[in-house]
Design a binder for these strands. Structure first.
Lengths: 119, 119
DNA sequence: GTATATATATGTAATTAGCATATATATGGA
DNA sequence: TCCATATATATGCTAATTACATATATATAC
């Protein structure tokens, strides 16, 4: 899984960012995996080469892991096209979402402190 | 190596941040490993439990790796206390430093975009 | 019918991070 | 003098994470 990359860098802990993205989106509406990754690719085109099965494999793994941890739940939806697993966020997921918001804000502050050193 | 952690999270790609920290500091003055880690612990007390040999082991490894990559160079300094390896930044290191500044700024923008989703 | 888009999933290698431990010098105190 | 502690650097090994390839199945457009 590639995630948030930039030039020569592997990327900063892609999974935490993708976890955050997933929980943030699911806190607004239900969605299935493919849909989430499409949205991710659309919103973060430069930071996320998140297209193709090779990348998405990792994405689906994150979703499965989040479900195991009780942060999201899923149900199968059949109908048009291949069956899709629709995910919703759980109360535990919402709690982690709030935590992640704090985390991301802290992270920004730390980056600012780091950038001060570079001036 | 622990690096930039936060509560239940392992932390976002510690080594990239520590690399950035090292290059940012060395672009101002020479320093040895122990000194760098002391400064890191002082400046980022909440994000970095960077004290003790267990943590520092990873730090010294990063320094060695940066030297192998030609981003920093070192010389031994003997005198008071145990011998220390004094590091300086190379032109290549300065170039990467500038790159990392851009990277960190981009990262902040991406985090902002991510946080918008959480509102 | 067959190429493509949609949709999910697994196997495995490579990389990164974490934690313990080893080594050596100097200093301060009992 | 002996011992604990601070300073200073380094390596071994395991665990966790990430990357990349590949498998599977359904529907649609040509």
């Amino acid at each position: 899984m590639r995630g948030f990359h930039h030039g020569r860098f592997r990327g900063v802990a892609p999974n935490i960012f993708i976890t955050a993205f997933v929980l943030f989106v699911l806190s607004r509406k239900e969605a299935h995996g493919y849909e989430l990754f499409e949205l991710l690719a659309e919103r973060f085109p430069n930071f996320c080469p998140c297209r193709g099965p090779s990348w998405m494999g990792g994405g689906y793994r994150i979703l499965r892991e989040l479900e195991i941890q009780g942060l999201i739940t899923s149900r199968w939806e059949t109908g048009e096209g291949p069956a899709k697993r629709i995910y919703s966020i759980t109360p535990e997921g919402k709690a982690l979402k709030e935590h992640l918001v704090d985390y991301m804000k802290d992270l920004k502050d730390q980056i600012d402190k780091l950038l001060e050193l570079a001036e």
